[in-house]
Design a protein around this nucleic acid. Structure first.
Lengths: 128, 128
DNA sequence: CTATAGGGTTGGAAAAGTCAACTCTCTCTG
DNA sequence: CAGAGAGAGTTGACTTTTCCAACCCTATAG
């Protein structure tokens, strides 16, 4: 309409799909080849019901694909689609930024998440 | 520590600061050199009270700086700090992804630049 | 005297998120 | 065979955020 308040923007379009809480963490897990509901819930910390809704939304957006991997007790797992895979740069840039500017909670030891663990604390003031 | 549920991760750390609704759009505006409260509110579509709280949070996180640019009717404007500027790659990768996978539908009228789009194929660039 | 810009704050309703517990179907262990 | 999981959700009560519209205050322009 006339007011055109929010400017049309692909960032906004992307966030419309990915911007809800937990969504990008879910994608992070899928990118790490964690495909099962329970594992995703555990690794992200997302409540199960929210996780369900995020997965549905991401599926609807074509970012995630739901595959049945077992029959009788029907079981599904989640995979990234091509669109989902192309989110890796987003995750990477976020991870890099987080490492430089928001690191703090990265306590754990092995394979924390972003790639190799160099665990160099003190990036805070960039003072070694 | 206990169950170690959520995996420690710089992506999560970054999202902890940036992951709330509107935050990244605010940063987009600042990156576009829109520095005033009203303009940011208008361009992002964020409610004013939420915008206030996002700006405060981003300021506390060191991503945004609040500067007084006028005295008597005290007026402020917002600028990206160094940390904020380094978010440009994040915005860029999001924008690129959005352009490729979440655009469409915003072509003609829709002002909101992303509500629920059906995405009906892209004949445009890839032919078909 | 009114209007507008600018940067917010306030209060209440509506929507989202959180949590614990429960389901249902198998399979595995003793 | 009983009981304990795994796996993928669902359900209902409860809490927190978001949203929206209206309000405040200062100052300049008409």
């Amino acid at each position: 309409m006339a007011e055109s308040s929010p400017r049309p923007c692909t960032v906004a379009a992307a966030l419309n799909v990915l911007g809800e809480k937990w969504s990008l963490l879910v994608i992070r897990e899928l990118a790490f080849r964690v495909h099962r509901f329970d594992a995703i819930a555990k690794n992200t910390g997302a409540p199960r019901d929210i996780l369900t809704s995020r997965l549905r939304r991401l599926e609807a957006a074509g970012v995630v694909e739901r595959r049945q991997y077992h029959d009788h007790p029907v079981r599904f797992e989640y995979h990234l689609t091509e669109a989902g895979n192309e989110l890796r740069p987003v995750l990477l840039s976020l991870a890099q930024w987080g490492e430089r500017w928001a690191a703090e909670a990265t306590v754990a030891f092995t394979h924390s998440c972003g790639e190799d663990l160099d665990l160099v604390h003190t990036c805070r003031a960039c003072g070694e």
